[in-house]
Computed example of a mutant assay.
Amino acid sequence: MGRLLLFVTGASKGIGLEVAVAALEKDYRVIATSRNAVTLRDQVLARVPEAGADFLALEMTFTEDSIKMAVKQALDQFGRIDVLVNNAGYGIFGALEEFSLEEVRKNFDVNVFGLLALTQAVLPGMREQKSGHIINLASISGSVTGPVQGIYSATKASVIMMSEALQAEVEPFGIQVTAVNPTGIRTDFLDASSMRRPEKEIKDYEVVQATMSGLARLNHNQGGDSTYLAQAILELAAMKKAPNRLYAGSGALAAMQYKITEVVQEINDFRELSQSVDRKD
């Protein structure tokens, strides 16, 4: 089969950039996308100058035509895509009442519908070659949520559920699917350049103000490391039997363990009510 080809989105900074660099250092061929291909190419080659023809930077937005063109360019140049890392996305934080539907749709357009459209564009080639691995960057927020995270959590929960269903659908073709759910990673995700707030602000929500202050303190103090996460993603890519979900980081594991305990307790507390809807005949 030769050297593997990795396609990673949102690669101009943060996790995506670290994945592209780490993959090239591990002798992958790499296609990386962002809204500015020239800047992206310069960033990657500054760190891996020997990449040469093994690296292709593409401009891609999350329109259907742009996605199809990027996949076509990838296949024309390299002939196949072995690993797709759906990394592009952003967070929007605020009380549910504050959001306009337009703001919500834009977040879903990138975090969910863009991811889905690219996955659909890549799957025919993977089915034909009877191999491939789709790695979707979700978040611990897709499983454990709280104030201000409602919309972002909804997008990442969608990614987790789509990944789980897709795994069952494509397993007969030798394709694997993994949803990676990181803890807080020390990138600029919480900077004003990346994180977005709704235009409308409702002062009554004191919990929003308190939570946003907490996020500001957390910014650049998160417990996860993007270079380590990139290495973990490449380790997943090399596995013959990868997990469908990976909760990455001690914070993510602790949050999930707490959530599982909470859900089990609530199930037990209301078991009789739950079972009351069963037919009696």
Results as ranks from 00 to 15, higher is better:
69 M>I: 06
64 E>F: 00
141 S>P: 04
145 T>K: 05
68 K>I: 01
174 G>V: 03
189 F>H: 08
114 G>K: 00
87 N>L: 04
175 I>N: 00
22 A>D: 13
122 V>W: 00
34 S>D: 04
49 P>D: 15
166 L>R: 02
185 I>E: 10
208 V>E: 04
127 R>C: 00
52 G>W: 14
202 I>A: 03
242 A>N: 03
162 M>D: 06
184 G>R: 06
159 V>H: 03
137 L>Y: 05
229 L>K: 02
93 F>H: 14
24 L>I: 11
170 V>A: 01
133 H>C: 03
97 E>K: 10
128 E>T: 12
122 V>Q: 00
58 L>P: 11
276 S>H: 13
121 A>Y: 00
246 L>I: 02
271 R>Y: 12
230 A>P: 00
88 A>D: 11
82 D>V: 02
8 V>H: 12
193 S>P: 07
77 Q>G: 01
254 A>W: 06
259 K>I: 06
121 A>R: 02
280 K>L: 08
125 G>K: 05
11 A>P: 05
97 E>S: 08
137 L>T: 10
159 V>M: 02
102 E>S: 10
162 M>I: 07
141 S>E: 11
22 A>M: 04
127 R>K: 01
216 A>R: 15
76 D>Q: 12
94 G>I: 05
254 A>L: 11
142 G>Q: 03
57 A>Y: 10
267 I>W: 14
199 E>Q: 11
194 S>N: 13
3 R>P: 11
55 F>P: 01
124 P>I: 02
232 A>R: 08
200 K>F: 02
104 V>C: 10
46 A>H: 14
248 A>I: 01
183 T>L: 04
276 S>N: 14
83 V>H: 12
160 I>D: 00
100 S>R: 02
160 I>L: 01
21 V>E: 10
122 V>G: 01
260 I>P: 07
222 Q>M: 15
164 E>N: 00
26 K>M: 05
272 E>P: 09
116 L>T: 13
234 L>R: 08
29 R>K: 10
141 S>V: 12
160 I>C: 01
183 T>R: 09
143 S>H: 10
200 K>V: 08
43 Q>W: 04
216 A>D: 15
134 I>G: 07
137 L>P: 08
274 S>A: 15
97 E>Q: 12
238 A>Y: 03
270 F>G: 15
1 M>S: 11
145 T>N: 13
37 A>H: 11
281 D>K: 07
105 R>F: 06
166 L>Q: 04
33 T>S: 09
229 L>Q: 09
86 N>W: 04
192 A>R: 14
79 G>S: 04
119 T>P: 01
22 A>R: 11
93 F>V: 12
133 H>T: 03
268 N>A: 15
179 A>N: 08
278 D>I: 09
195 M>C: 14
35 R>N: 08
29 R>S: 10
96 L>T: 15
201 E>K: 07
275 Q>C: 13
279 R>C: 07
144 V>M: 03
105 R>T: 08
103 E>R: 04
70 A>K: 06
215 L>G: 10
156 K>A: 01
161 M>Q: 02
257 Q>T: 07
180 V>A: 06
98 E>M: 06
228 Y>P: 00
200 K>D: 03
74 A>S: 15
219 N>K: 13
46 A>E: 15
262 E>W: 13
140 I>H: 08
206 E>T: 12
72 K>P: 06
209 Q>S: 11
55 F>E: 01
2 G>C: 04
227 T>R: 13
88 A>G: 09
252 A>S: 11
92 I>D: 11
155 T>L: 06
134 I>D: 09
